[in-house]
Design a protein around this nucleic acid. Structure first.
Length: 272
DNA sequence: AACCCTGTTATCGA
DNA sequence: TTCGATAACAGGGT
């Protein structure tokens, strides 16, 4: 389920862990999420070390432990972080692939489909999996120039596809991409090089606005977004555009660039 | 029972 | 090179 704001919410679920150390209570080394790490190495360098802080970049989470160990978590389609009471130790799910236990809590990473990923770097090992120095879309330092040069580089590609590219729009997923296009009043099927300057400006403003709104509402406590967002209507059969200007045009669902896109034919246009 | 999925990567061919 | 379509991953919801 997770993109930018959902990932932020999941990251915070382990906040009570900060300042404490844990032992690994459950880890299935054959689970696919460990395909890029050596589980023994990970365990040896995490157990007994205090968690110092957590960070997020786009859809990636990072936990920094005392002694220089860094644990990376990517939630994939179905990943979830949670805190649980010690009493739940006997009731763990078969998809709870990584469970850390402090003196009074369990901290669980669950992922049923296992499209998620665990990464790890001990002290001195290179952080190849963490993007440094390129702000994600939820960061106010995410700049116009960065977005514009990425759009230029991918000029021949379909906008929806480019919005989903984590290199250019770190954190954007399927619903955010649709929400961004809808707020910018641009059809998701346009080629990037067809966008006018005004549309590109509108796109940038929408990227930042959707990211900030999502972090504020969903990232804060997983609230349901208000009906003013496309979000609330996009999966409903017979969903109507909530913008007053088109008087409730039926929303269209269509596969674009391999993913289901949802848009309003009246509000969103091709050319600027 | 068939079909869907808020993600990512590899591969093929245009 | 760049892009899009497709499959694959593996499970659960409708």
């Amino acid at each position: 389920m997770p993109e930018l704001a959902e990932v932020e919410y999941h990251r915070k679920q382990w906040d009570p862990f900060i300042g404490r150390s844990a032992r690994v209570a459950q880890l299935n080394p054959r689970a696919r999420i460990f395909r890029e790490v050596d589980p023994d190495h990970l365990v040896a360098n995490i157990e007994g070390r205090r968690l110092l802080k957590s960070l997020r970049h786009g859809k990636r989470i990072r936990f920094d432990f005392a002694g220089g160990s860094r644990l990376g978590i990517q939630l994939g389609m179905t990943g979830a972080m949670r805190m649980a009471d010690l009493s739940e130790r006997e009731a763990l799910d078969r998809h709870d692939h990584l469970v850390l236990e402090t003196e009074d809590r369990l901290f669980v990473f669950r992922d049923s489909r296992m499209f998620g990923l665990v990464r790890f770097s001990a002290k001195g090992e290179e952080l190849t999996w963490w993007p440094e120095g390129s702000p994600d879309v939820g960061d106010e330092r995410y700049s116009r120039d960065f977005m514009l040069s990425f759009l230029e580089r991918r000029g021949g590609a379909i906008l929806k596809n480019v919005l989903l590219d984590q290199e250019g729009f770190p954190g954007v997923g399927n619903w955010m991409a649709d929400e961004i296009c809808w707020r910018a009043e641009i059809l998701p099927s346009v080629r990037c090089r067809e966008l006018s300057d005004a549309q590109k400006e509108s796109l940038y403003v929408s990227v930042r606005a959707v990211s900030d709104d999502a972090l504020r509402v969903i990232g804060h406590d997983y609230s349901t977004p208000p009906p003013e967002w496309l979000f609330t209507h996009r999966w409903k059969d017979g969903g109507l555009c909530p913008l007053p200007r088109c008087h409730g045009e039926p929303l269209v669902r269509q596969k674009i660039a391999g993913r289901t896109a949802c848009f309003c034919r009246a509000c969103q246009t091709e050319a600027g």
